[in-house]
Design a protein around this nucleic acid. Sequence first.
DNA 1: TTTT
DNA 2: TTTT
Lengths: 152, 152, 152, 152
Amino acid sequence: MSGTLNKVMLIGHTGDDVKMHYFEGGNCIGRFPLATNDSYVNKSTGERVNTTEWHNIVVRNKAAEICEKYLNKGDKIYIEGRLKTRKWQDEQGKDRYSTEIQCTDFTFLTPKNESQITGSSMQSAPQANTPAVNPQEVSTNSPEMEDDDLPF
Amino acid sequence: MSGTLNKVMLIGHTGDDVKMHYFEGGNCIGRFPLATNDSYVNKSTGERVNTTEWHNIVVRNKAAEICEKYLNKGDKIYIEGRLKTRKWQDEQGKDRYSTEIQCTDFTFLTPKNESQITGSSMQSAPQANTPAVNPQEVSTNSPEMEDDDLPF
Amino acid sequence: MSGTLNKVMLIGHTGDDVKMHYFEGGNCIGRFPLATNDSYVNKSTGERVNTTEWHNIVVRNKAAEICEKYLNKGDKIYIEGRLKTRKWQDEQGKDRYSTEIQCTDFTFLTPKNESQITGSSMQSAPQANTPAVNPQEVSTNSPEMEDDDLPF
Amino acid sequence: MSGTLNKVMLIGHTGDDVKMHYFEGGNCIGRFPLATNDSYVNKSTGERVNTTEWHNIVVRNKAAEICEKYLNKGDKIYIEGRLKTRKWQDEQGKDRYSTEIQCTDFTFLTPKNESQITGSSMQSAPQANTPAVNPQEVSTNSPEMEDDDLPF
DNA sequence: TTTT
DNA sequence: TTTT
């Protein structure tokens, strides 16, 4: 609805493997943490301070499956999405809030041959069998505008 | 393909009506100019300089038709798209280049009741019959991710 | 530091007046809630669902003062910033998290003469005395690149 | 001036070294081409088409010098900037237009040790002596908001 | 002229 | 919990 914009663009490194959740009806989502770094100079002390910001990324359905398959812990990725704050209840029944980035587009930025294959990770195994299709850039949309051959 | 990003985001005012072009096979595009303003201080003279930048917006198919119908000269609009430089030949057969923004998303920012209806414009007439559906925000994608009701 | 990006871009309506906080040393911040709208079709029922997302905006120093002065509840504004999740302790000493958008740039999108002046709001009074300088677009950066007159 | 937005965000590979231009008064700019890739399926033939889009990047002053020093042909980089179409006259005195991206922010995305040092390039030599300061992310602004230590 |  |  109506004349607003809700857009997040991140480039960062994943802090963990993609955790998948499957729903009845065939839908699924994947979640993973993404780290971005900021740096500023503390005015009082004059020293440079490095901080890390962690973002909760949520990817859906086919995009989730691609991330689960080809995205490894530590990889660099570009994420585009929307901010969404979920409300939930803790053990005491108190309202709690958690802000997530619902991913709408992503682009792998770590070359395939540099992606870390953590030995213990089931999810990394398939990568050894590199797919015929390069999964580096995947849109979670079905952009009809790109699917034709108009002369412009 | 391949780990790159090409994104433009503009908020500006349209400088003219949408010009439509129809192709065989049913496709169409709409074109219109969009103005953004910059302002900077001239270091030598110390005075503030206001400049206007004109952008060539290209919208496709259904999105083009919506713009033609509801977007009036002077309206404010948010445009998201990709940069595309077209090559063409002038009368002397010389290569010329023209850079356009291929629109992938847009949001009308002028309230419907404030949009200027330029009397001479055929395209404005339908607006008098306000549509049942509010066309304020329209995505040119078919974002499957928004079309379901996953619990997150 | 280090090759990452943390960017948020929002267009929405403010849900309340700007709340100012002043610090020793002369710094200050302003906070206000911003609403964006999403809309999707529920696959099961087929009906369109409209949702509102609320964002916690934090503006600093001079930018905060400008927002306090000229931004009224209900106004439309473009916000650019960074995501930042603050950690705090609740009454039980439990860790809690709150995600904010640290504003780095903004642009007023409500024409000055349409901005709602809520009678009870002290902060709106100054707006009656419209400033000589139009505060519609303000960057919270000091963009050296715009401050000169290079020939390009 | 006034309620508009002109923003470009690109991730691509540089197609050439940075060409510097120095002006009287100490200002300088650097220019280099940036390639982004798009891919779409030709509806008639059903085959995937890969296209390359070239962007003219213009960087200023200190940012230009950093790019000249540390950015090598083929490197991947994130560019944020504004669209600017310059008007110029060709040999026949005819108006010609050229669209550029005036860079306001950038982030190197190629790890330093993978950046190609083209043997013949003077500009690459200094990179052998790696700088004490990591130049990976550089803002061409002077973001006052990041330079303090407010408690948020 | 880049890259995958 | 990532990365430089």
